[in-house]
Amino acid sequence: MNIQKVNVCMDILKKDLGEGFIASCIIMTEDGQVLVATDQANIAEATLLNDATAFIRNALKTYPAELGQYYYVDVAGTMAVLVIPFGDYQWTVTVNKKQVKLGLLLNVVLPAIINAFEDAVVS
């Protein structure tokens, strides 16, 4: 993984989300250790969402379906969390849902950061 490129990913995120950006964090899915986190990142939440991803994958087996590229968690109040599992890594992005439109987040920001992150991982 290219750390500089990962930092570029974070910069893209901050730039695209503007004031709606709250925090972001990338962890290793295997042990929940943090690789990169911004100042306001809630590490505990990011780690818990790592377990949540496993729970979701398991719950979907009943339907049956498989988890795709992301999931979005509405949090009471003004926050929401976008979770992007990338195999060995999981990226959480916390936004102010009052300031970031869901369409922008899912249709513009998400594809951009997925491409950037994939590039960072293979580098």
Partner: peptide
């Protein structure tokens, strides 16, 4: 199974973070 998932998320959020789960989840599937 989906209700167990939201119960887990609610419990986790309220017990392990300063926040509460909101009123919806969106999960992208294959």
């Amino acid at each position: 199974s989906f209700m167990r998932l939201t119960t887990y998320m609610k419990t986790t959020y309220s017990s392990e973070t300063p926040f509460e789960l909101g009123d919806h989840l969106i999960i992208d599937l294959k």
